[in-house]
Design a protein around this nucleic acid. Sequence first.
DNA 1: TGTTAAACGTGATTATATAACATATCAACC
DNA 2: GGTTGATATGTTATATAATCACGTTTAACA
Lengths: 169, 169
Amino acid sequence: MTDTYGFHSHDHSACIADCVAHVDQLCRAQGLQFTPVRRRVLEILLEAHRARGAYEILDILRNEGLGSQPPVVYRALDFLVSHGFVHKIEGLNAFVACARPGEDHAAAFLICRRCHAVAETPTATGGGRLGTTARAAGFQIEAAVIEATGVCPKCQTDGSETPPSRART
Amino acid sequence: MTDTYGFHSHDHSACIADCVAHVDQLCRAQGLQFTPVRRRVLEILLEAHRARGAYEILDILRNEGLGSQPPVVYRALDFLVSHGFVHKIEGLNAFVACARPGEDHAAAFLICRRCHAVAETPTATGGGRLGTTARAAGFQIEAAVIEATGVCPKCQTDGSETPPSRART
DNA sequence: TGTTAAACGTGATTATATAACATATCAACC
DNA sequence: GGTTGATATGTTATATAATCACGTTTAACA
């Protein structure tokens, strides 16, 4: 099975298993409980390799008997996000599996507005222009959201072009 | 009256009037209707110099008899955002008046998580590392959201420190 | 002044997220 | 083994954010 990952086609049936196993290991090492719901939510996000909303994930959990109420999925997402296994895409109110779980990192995202595919790329923290501005203003940066919206290569070729939605910023 | 603007104290009773007049001019020049609701929403955002939610704005409009239903404020915000007079802060689902209305620009934001003060700063478009990554991936960036969260100088001094909320990204 | 497009008023609904509280599970310790 | 405390889950209800649909009003302009 292939799907988009960072906009490049690749076989990722193994990539899901690898990533889940990796997170499993990290949780053991840190004494965190990688429970069935948390594991399944991570899998669901890895399967898609795109941003999915909490209620979309909840629908899947519900069909599988793993929980049917919003707090179930929000708690699992909260766990996964707070430990760096999943990122929240603020511009979509949606979530995506982290490409580098465990590596403490700041990430930027390229988000396709047509298919919601998400590519994650590392980014500098504080070294850039924004960091300089912040220091000059006496502002202490704790976290940053960097999300670029556009059209991924696949959707550019797919035709039936839709106009850009109005810029957000 | 003084308030925070870019985290610096300054008199801004004039700054509100100036900005509204400036936007008024821009609308005339572009044949846009700067209606009472739209004008008032912009003023409300300028008065605060911080991010405010749509329903917070709506409460004020309601008290003034300018509209009581969500679509009223969302339509006004949609107009203001789409013409670059207001920015949406995705991380807060809230809105802030633009510091440079009319100048077509990409902006980054420093957002205080305690008082929701927002400083806007210009940012490079496409020239940086993210732009390079995007080009290499064949991704066409149309818009970018750059939001740094932290504590502003005022709140740092104000004591009663609250711990950082979990990182979002 | 008649025509048309844009903006507004309003009620309902959808989407996203959290509060509050009861129950269950698990590990540490006695 | 039983108790205890911490963490996770189940469930109901509700809060918050945003949009839809449709009819009316207003503004621009021929």
